[in-house]
Amino acid sequence: VTLFVALYDYEAITEDDLSFHKGEKFQILNSSEGDWWEARSLTTGETGYIPSNYVAPVD
């Protein structure tokens, strides 16, 4: 499982989006939707859509 880490803070715009803070880690559930990925936060356990350009793979 490839994990991703937030590079910036993000505040949800719609109820389907997931708010997060810089440094938060995610498991990507679906990355086939283009620039918005469905993800689960490993910090909160919540799922929602995140902007793919706000995250990077964890080394």
Rank of each mutant, 00 (worst) to 15 (best):
E33P: 11
S52L: 05
H21M: 14
E24K: 01
L42R: 03
K25I: 15
S19M: 03
A39V: 15
A6H: 00
L29D: 05
S31K: 12
G45D: 06
L18K: 02
P51K: 07
D59Q: 12
Y49Q: 09
F4D: 00
D35V: 10
R40Y: 11
G48L: 02
E46R: 12
E15R: 10
S31V: 10
Q27L: 12
V5M: 09
S41N: 12
N30H: 09
Y49P: 02
W37E: 01
Y8W: 11
T43K: 13
E15M: 13
E33I: 11
A39R: 00
Y10G: 01
T14W: 12
K22S: 07
T47A: 07
Y8L: 09
E33V: 12
G48V: 02
E33S: 15
L18S: 02
N30G: 10
G34N: 11
D17H: 15
W37Q: 02
L29A: 05
V1K: 09
D9Q: 05
D9F: 04
T2V: 13
G45E: 05
V55F: 10
S41V: 06
F20C: 03
P57H: 07
T43C: 08
V5P: 00
P57K: 08
E33G: 13
I50T: 00
D17E: 15
S32E: 15
F26Q: 00
N53C: 08
T14A: 14
W36M: 14
T44P: 01
D35K: 10
E11H: 12
S41F: 03
S19R: 04
I50G: 00
N53E: 09
E38L: 15
F26G: 00
E15A: 14
T43I: 09
V58D: 10
Q27D: 08
E38W: 13
D35N: 09
D16W: 15
F26R: 00
E11R: 09
K22W: 05
L29Q: 05
Q27Y: 15
F26L: 09
P51N: 11
I50Q: 00
S41T: 04
L18G: 00
D35H: 13
V55Q: 01
R40C: 09
K22G: 04
R40W: 08
Q27W: 13
L7C: 06
T47V: 15
I13N: 11
L29H: 05
G23R: 02
V1C: 09
H21D: 05
L3P: 05
D35T: 12
E11D: 10
P51I: 04
E46G: 08
A56Q: 11
P57L: 08
E15H: 12
W36T: 06
D59Y: 13
S19Y: 03
L7Q: 05
D17A: 12
E24F: 04
G48Y: 02
G23C: 05
F26D: 00
G48S: 02
F20T: 03
A56R: 11
T44Y: 03
S19K: 04
L7V: 07
A12P: 05
L7K: 06
F20A: 02
D17R: 15
F4P: 00
S52I: 06
K22R: 11
L29N: 05
A39F: 03
F26H: 00
S19N: 06
W37I: 06
Y8A: 10
T47D: 04
N30D: 11
Y54E: 01
L3Y: 14
S52T: 07
W37R: 02
G34M: 11
S19V: 03
K25C: 07
L29E: 05
G48C: 01
G34T: 14
A6M: 01
I28E: 00
D9N: 10
G48W: 02
T14M: 13
F4L: 04
L18H: 02
T2S: 12
Y54G: 06
V55E: 00
L42N: 05
K22F: 05
S32W: 11
D16K: 15
I13F: 09
A12N: 06
G45W: 07
F4Q: 03
W37Y: 09
S52Q: 07
S19Q: 04
A6C: 02
S41R: 13
G48N: 02
F20P: 00
L3S: 05
L29S: 05
G34A: 15
S52G: 07
E24T: 07
Y49I: 10
F20N: 00
S52V: 10
V55L: 15
L7A: 02
L3R: 05
E46F: 12
P51S: 05
S41A: 07
H21R: 14
G34C: 07
L3I: 15
E38P: 05
V55W: 01
E11L: 12
G23Y: 05
F26W: 01
L29G: 04
N30T: 08
L42G: 03
S41Y: 03
I50F: 01
A6D: 00
K22E: 07
E24I: 02
I28A: 03
Q27M: 15
G34V: 15
T47N: 05
E46I: 10
D9W: 04
T47Y: 09
A6R: 00
F20R: 00
V58E: 11
T43F: 09
N53A: 12
V1W: 14
A12T: 04
E24G: 02
W36R: 14
E15D: 13
L42A: 05
F4M: 10
V58Q: 08
N53H: 12
D9G: 05
L7D: 01
R40T: 15
D59I: 11
D16S: 11
T14S: 14
Y54R: 07
T14K: 15
G23S: 04
D17W: 15
F20G: 01
D16F: 15
N30W: 07
D17G: 15
E24W: 10
F26V: 03
S32V: 10
I13L: 13
D35I: 11
G48I: 02
E46W: 08
G34P: 15
P51V: 02
D35A: 10
Y8K: 09
E33N: 15
I28N: 01
N30P: 04
S32Q: 12
Y49M: 13
S52R: 11
Y49H: 08
D59S: 12
L42K: 04
E11S: 11
D35C: 08
T43Q: 08
D17F: 15
Y49A: 05
V1F: 14
P51E: 02
T2N: 13
E11Q: 13
Y8R: 10
W36S: 07
L42Y: 07
D9R: 04
K25N: 07
V1H: 12
N30R: 07
I28Q: 01
A56I: 11
G48P: 00
I13G: 11
T2C: 08
S32F: 10
D9C: 06
V58N: 06
F20D: 00
V58S: 08
Y49V: 07
R40E: 07
L7H: 03
S52C: 07
S52F: 08
A12H: 06
L42P: 03
S52D: 02
P57W: 06
Y54T: 05
T43H: 12
A12L: 01
T2E: 12
Y8N: 07
K25Y: 11
A56D: 05
E46A: 15
W36Y: 11
Y8D: 07
G45H: 07
Y49W: 12
G23F: 05
F4H: 06
G34E: 15
K25F: 14
Y49E: 03
L3A: 06
G34Y: 09
S41H: 08
G45L: 07
E11G: 06
E46P: 00
N53W: 12
W36P: 06
L18D: 00
V5T: 05
E33M: 13
G23E: 04
V58M: 13
E38D: 05
W36D: 03
I28D: 00
N30Y: 07
K25G: 04
D59N: 12
E11P: 04
I28Y: 03
G34D: 14
I50D: 00
V1M: 14
T44N: 06
E33F: 11
Y8Q: 09
N30I: 06
T2H: 11
V58T: 07
S19E: 04
A56C: 07
L42T: 08
A56S: 10
T44G: 03
W37L: 08
Q27S: 08
V58H: 10
I50E: 00
L18P: 01
D17K: 14
A56Y: 09
T2Q: 13
N53S: 14
K22Y: 05
W37N: 01
A12D: 02
Y10E: 00
I28P: 03
I28G: 01
D17S: 14
L7G: 02
N53K: 15
K25T: 13
E38N: 09
